[in-house]
Amino acid sequence: MIQALVFYVFAAITVASGVMVISARNPVHAVLFLILAFFNAAGLFLLAGAEFLAMVLVVVYVGAVAVLFLFVVMMLDINFIKLREGFLQYLPIGGLVGLILLAELALVFGSWSFAPHAALSVATHVPDLHVVTNTDALGRLLFTHYFYLFQVAGLVLLVAMIGTILLTLRSRPGVKKQNIARQNARTKETSVELRKVPTRGGI
């Protein structure tokens, strides 16, 4: 009973903050509602018994991705009223995309019923969740059964990372940079010069 109650609280807040993301007037408030939605989704994961996924959702999405997102939105100079202008114009396309997504979700859920073996073929590698913990089970799946796929995913991320660095790297001339090794190698002899300055004479 309590579990159902908590589920409905989390679900209601998730949906409500999802609505607020697209209807908030201020983009920063929209991002903050997005973060609230993420956080409540983590709560839903926790209720489903997926504690590892819940924590990772908070660490990765809320703790890192959304921070950078918020960072960018705060720095941008956005005209709030102009942002609203095309709302009705884009409504049909947005609605269409939403409908397609809804239909696909329905198909995904439907496939459990019209392909009864689907669940079985997925479940073959899954260790017994009553014996091992959540984290352990995920680790075994990723690092043992799907090791190559995991490596490929890592490579894809590496390529994306290198691409990003390459796009933003530019060497600007005339920028003063500190070379720590050279800084530490400086001695009194090489950097300080004592001079006897004659009065009213200057150097």
Partner: peptide, 16 residues
């Protein structure tokens, strides 16, 4: 079971 991750998640939220 995920105590360390919980601490890490909470400390990563602190920036907000």
């Amino acid at each position: 079971n995920v105590g360390v991750l919980y601490l890490f998640a909470i400390s990563s939220l602190g920036v907000y």
